[in-house]
């Protein structure tokens, strides 16, 4: 303590000024790109910002918590049309996509962790779906899911005979699968590559030790691999949660490039907020819905962080 006090006041500034210089652009970028828009969004959520007041923009009349009341408590408000369905869909979508991408990523990472000829080629090949932009993914899968001529039904019904008739994927309750599967397809390589990096850090001696104790591969996975990879897959859970709750491109492009309505089983929070803000011109209510979603996400991330801290401590 004493030594610190003796140092001049700008000692740390001088010592770390290069670090500050490197951080500064990111910090300025974050303030401009994130913090100011968030604050503006929160401010907008208190305004009556619709087609009549849009020209006044931030000078639109202040209605305080009316928009929040409309979203949460007013059953006759237009924003409530289909809101609960999009909440339900977003939860199902987020849970299944996150689980799916980590699960698939883990299986392939375990396979790629084995030594075999052409391993690096296969690894590169598997990354391809991650390169495809999300809106292209939406358009392409929109074609693939078509009932009569889509390749998926051709494979499932005509080639493999797994189903008796060709089901509809883009109309009706199956819509939820039509958006979940492409999202897993798009994101699983990211999980795979991170899990693979984690796997390569686990010492082979640990596996040798449990082998001597008589454990099989299954036990070795659950006792060694899974717990030691916890920091990696927990980060994946966080990323998955955030990406998928805010998912937009794949859904909007799959259903008429934004023209159509994704359906009772395809509408997510983001497509709902988009429709209310940009198509129905109720930016105040749209902003309020976004702020409520942001609050939920902050809570969810907080809960996640507690688990993560515990996991880190146990490792």
């Amino acid at each position: 303590m004493a030594t610190i006090e003796q140092r001049p006041r700008n000692y740390y500034y001088k010592k770390y000024r290069i670090a500050y210089a490197f951080i500064a652009p990111t910090l300025i970028g974050m303030i401009i790109m994130h913090f100011i828009p968030i604050l503006q969004g929160i401010y907008m959520s208190f305004l009556s910002l619709n087609n009549y007041t849009l020209s006044q923009y931030l000078g639109a009349p202040m209605v305080w918590f009316q928009n929040y009341y409309d979203v949460l408590l007013n059953p006759s408000s237009p924003i409530r049309i289909g809101l609960l369905q999009s909440v339900r869909n977003t939860i199902i979508y987020t849970v299944l996509v996150t689980t799916g991408q980590i699960g698939l990523g883990m299986i392939v990472a375990l396979m790629l962790n084995l030594e075999f000829p052409g391993r690096s080629f296969v690894r590169t090949l598997f990354l391809f779906s991650w390169i495809v932009p999300t809106y292209v993914t939406g358009i392409l899968w929109g074609f693939m899911w078509q009932q009569s001529i889509g390749i998926i039904n051709i494979i499932l019904v005509d080639w493999l005979h797994l189903l008796p008739t060709k089901p509809f994927w883009l109309v009706g309750p199956n819509t939820i699968w039509a958006i979940i599967v492409p999202t897993i397809w798009r994101y699983w390589p990211m999980s795979m590559i991170m899990l693979l990096a984690g796997l390569q850090n686990i010492s082979a001696e640990l596996y040798d030790a449990v082998k001597i104790d008589g454990a099989n591969r299954w036990t070795a996975f659950w006792k060694i691999t899974w717990p030691l990879l916890r920091p990696v897959w927990m980060i994946q859970v966080l990323f998955g949660m955030i990406y998928n709750v805010y998912s937009f491109n794949i859904v909007i492009m799959m259903f008429g490039n934004g023209a159509g309505f994704p359906g009772e089983w395809g509408d997510l929070m983001m497509t709902n907020i988009f429709r209310n803000s940009f198509m129905r011109w109720d930016f105040g209510v749209g902003a309020a819905t976004s702020v409520i979603l942001l609050m939920f996400m902050i809570m969810a991330v907080n809960i996640w962080f507690r688990f993560y801290k515990k996991a880190e401590e146990s490792v």
Binding site: N51, I81, E264
Partner: peptide, 18 residues
Amino acid sequence: LIEPILARRFGIMWDYVL
């Protein structure tokens, strides 16, 4: 503002019909 609401409702209609 009404048209997107109608497009949604009559879009769902085809789900129900199916």
